[in-house]
Simulated scan of single mutants.
Amino acid sequence: MVKEKFQLEFPIHASPSMLYQYFATPSGLGEWFADNVNSRGELFTFIWDGSEEQAKLLASKTDDRAKFHWVEDEDDNAYFEFKIQVDALTKDVSLIITDFAEEDEIDEAKMLWENQISELKHIIGA
């Protein structure tokens, strides 16, 4: 089944350099995204309730973005990305999430992201 791309934008009151650490490092991701995260080079292992999933870091730019692909995902074009966007005028910081899901799972995927980002905001006090 073909996956569809979707994006979500979350305003976050944090500096880009601080925010970047929470989605580009195993320790940062382990605080809000998964129970535990380990990495060996470009391969990140995410652990939830004893089950593991691996994702490959496809691209990363300091204080800007990190892009991952789930290893077991058969859709080679699917990925999930965290991108920091700073408004040039107001300097407001937003986190843009890009992800892929099958058409009948998009609402569920969006809800999951909203819960995860809510947890991130709680942890960083944003």
Rank of each mutant, 00 (worst) to 15 (best):
K61T: 12
S51H: 10
G41E: 07
D63L: 07
D49K: 15
D63G: 09
D35G: 08
A59H: 14
G41M: 11
G30D: 12
D64S: 14
M18A: 12
S39V: 05
I12N: 09
M18T: 14
W48M: 01
L58A: 06
D35Y: 02
P26S: 04
N38M: 14
Q7L: 11
Y22I: 00
S15T: 14
F44D: 06
E53V: 00
E31G: 10
V37T: 03
K61L: 12
W32F: 13
E42A: 11
F33C: 05
E31M: 12
N36G: 13
G41W: 15
E31L: 09
L58K: 15
Q21Y: 09
L57H: 03
F46H: 05
R65I: 04
A34G: 06
S27V: 08
M18S: 14
D35L: 03
S27C: 03
T62M: 04
F10V: 13
G41Y: 08
V37A: 03
D49P: 00
G28Y: 06
A14S: 11
R65Y: 08
L19V: 11
I47H: 02
A14W: 06
F6C: 07
W32Q: 02
H13S: 12
Q54N: 14
F23I: 10
F10I: 09
K61N: 10
Q21H: 05
F23M: 12
F23D: 01
G50V: 01
E9F: 05
L58S: 07
K56A: 13
F46G: 00
S15L: 13
P16I: 08
R40E: 08
L8M: 14
R40V: 08
F33N: 06
E31H: 04
P16A: 11
W48F: 10
R65K: 14
A55E: 05
P16T: 11
A34R: 06
G30Y: 05
L57A: 06
Q7T: 12
S39Y: 08
W48K: 01
S17Q: 06
H13L: 13
D49H: 15
E42H: 14
E42T: 14
A55L: 03
G30K: 14
F23L: 11
P11G: 07
F10W: 04
S27F: 03
L43T: 09
L29H: 01
L8C: 08
K56P: 00
H13M: 11
L58E: 07
E31W: 00
T25E: 08
L29Y: 02
F33Q: 07
D49N: 15
S17T: 15
W32S: 01
S39K: 07
D35S: 04
K5Y: 12
Y20S: 13
I47W: 01
E42R: 11
L29A: 03
I47R: 02
E53Y: 01
G30Q: 15
K56G: 06
D49A: 12
Y22P: 01
R40G: 06
K5H: 12
F10G: 10
I47S: 11
T62E: 13
G50N: 02
L29R: 11
P26I: 04
A24L: 09
F23W: 07
P11F: 05
I12G: 02
P16V: 10
E9Q: 05
L29N: 05
K5M: 12
S17F: 09
I12F: 03
G50A: 05
E53K: 03
P16M: 15
N38E: 14
D63W: 13
E42W: 07
F33Y: 15
A14R: 10
Y22W: 13
R40M: 13
S39W: 03
